[in-house]
């Protein structure tokens, strides 16, 4: 009994060390989304100028097929980094990707797509104060949501999509939902 008592500080120290080491590997920006398994928020977003037949993005558009909703903005630096991946995904044509042009002037959002390429099927404009983005619980751009065919949010990805996390995380989830 005594011996255990003497060992106690060491045990507590080891326990705390393990806990803190785990804390070091965690990304504090990854906040669990409360919207998982909830319906896509009600929205009727206007289209961007000059995107042909696109009528914008509304809740009903996200039903019927598994899709990805990507939050971007022409002001967003990490979105430029993510963009080639989205373009490649469009080419593969696995899953429709829709965009929400967040906190942006729709003209600039459209110009940005002209410049970097347009991977989206539908794009809705959500100018400041970004009510739809707040409804989605968005904390920054880019952020992506996987929506199932019933319009239920199934997964949220914070930060840029890369070929790697697409293959490892997002695509398997989409495949599972498409079954």
């Amino acid at each position: 009994m005594r011996r255990i008592l003497y060992l106690l500080p060491v045990l507590i120290f080891v326990g705390l060390t393990v806990l803190f080491l785990k804390g070091l590997t965690m990304d504090p920006r990854q906040i669990p989304s409360v919207l998982i398994d909830r319906a896509v928020p009600e929205m009727v977003l206007a289209p961007l100028p000059g995107r042909g037949e696109d009528t914008g993005l509304s809740t009903a558009d996200l039903k019927g097929r598994v899709s990805v909703v990507n939050i971007y903005g022409s002001w967003c630096v990490a979105c430029v980094q993510e963009h080639p991946t989205l373009m490649a995904l469009k080419k593969q044509g696995d899953v429709p990707i829709h965009g929400i042009d967040w906190r942006d002037d729709p003209e600039q959002g459209a110009a940005w797509l002209k410049k970097h390429g347009d991977p989206y099927q539908r794009v809705g404009a959500d100018p400041a104060p970004g009510r739809t983005a707040v409804d989605f619980g968005v904390t920054g751009a880019p952020e992506s949501f996987i929506v199932d065919r019933n319009g239920i949010i199934r997964y949220k990805h914070t930060g840029p999509i890369t070929p790697e996390n697409w293959r490892k995380t997002l695509l398997p989830i989409i495949r599972e939902l498409e079954k």
């Binding site: 920006r29 906040i31 906190r103 400041a128 104060p129 970004g130 968005v138 904390t139 920054g140």
Partner: peptide, 20 residues
């Protein structure tokens, strides 16, 4: 403020804090 994390939206200059 969900971007700056340890500030309140009242304190923060972040755009999202302003939106909120």
């Amino acid at each position: 403020c969900v971007v700056c994390q340890n500030q309140s939206i009242d304190d923060s200059d972040a755009d999202l804090a302003r939106d909120l």
